[in-house]
Design a protein around this nucleic acid. Structure first.
Lengths: 114, 114
DNA sequence: TACCAATATACGCATATGGGTATATCTATA
DNA sequence: TATAGATATACCCATATGCGTATATTGGTA
């Protein structure tokens, strides 16, 4: 029950929903997330820390970059994220985020080791 | 997007999750809800008011009793509640609430007009 | 009309939460 | 070793949120 409530609690914040939808799509590093969200690094880091500390995402350092990816163990979270993605048309902000992500992927390689 | 966030916000509180799961089951009045939850009337009323004001439930007076029932328009909420009910074994508190509800239904008729 | 039951809400309080600024920490490179 | 870039976190602040107690409101009945 606590895990269920925690799932809803992390989803109660717009920034964190946006983060989770993007991480549902693929593994991303902080600078990519900041870039797409258009939010400050401390803000994004804090939200990511919360997601990590509650077990919803995991992190992984690759040199100077920290990548975050979704912990797929949470069935309810997966159900919700899938529902969101299937009905992306209803959430323009989220759709735009993912669109920006595709754009980034297409033209440049961010966070690649030099 | 706001509606999505509001859905998660109302679900971030245990009392409200318990209320919504019971109301997903059937229309109920405040005294029934208080009885099953084992919570105070002001507390339950306040949560119900929030659910009503945000459009998740509707109320209906029948003499001195106020019945609440779920507004089925929210697709995400329905998906979530269904997921919870299908996996009820993972949420003992919720299972116990619904069990108590069945018990009540079986033996007495609460809130019946005299 | 008075009294009672069911329920909503006002008020005050304690705790939680998100966000900005500044700074600490870690890694890469010259 | 010094410098720079990426990121985490400390600190402070403002606002949101849940809860209990007390009281107001509505409907039923004698």
């Amino acid at each position: 029950m606590e895990k269920l409530l925690n799932t809803f609690k992390v989803l109660s914040d717009e920034t964190r929903v946006r983060l989770l939808v993007m991480l549902y799509h693929k593994k991303l590093c902080v600078c990519e997330l900041c870039g797409v969200l258009g939010e400050s690094q401390p803000k994004v880091s804090k939200h990511l820390a919360k997601l990590r500390d509650m077990g919803f995402v995991k992190d992984e350092r690759q040199e100077q970059f920290i990548f975050y990816y979704l912990n797929m163990d949470n069935k309810m979270l997966n159900t919700i994220l899938q529902e969101i993605v299937v009905n992306l048309g209803e959430y323009p902000t989220l759709a735009k985020d993912l669109q920006q992500l595709e754009g980034v992927e297409k033209f440049i390689q961010i966070c690649e080791p030099k």
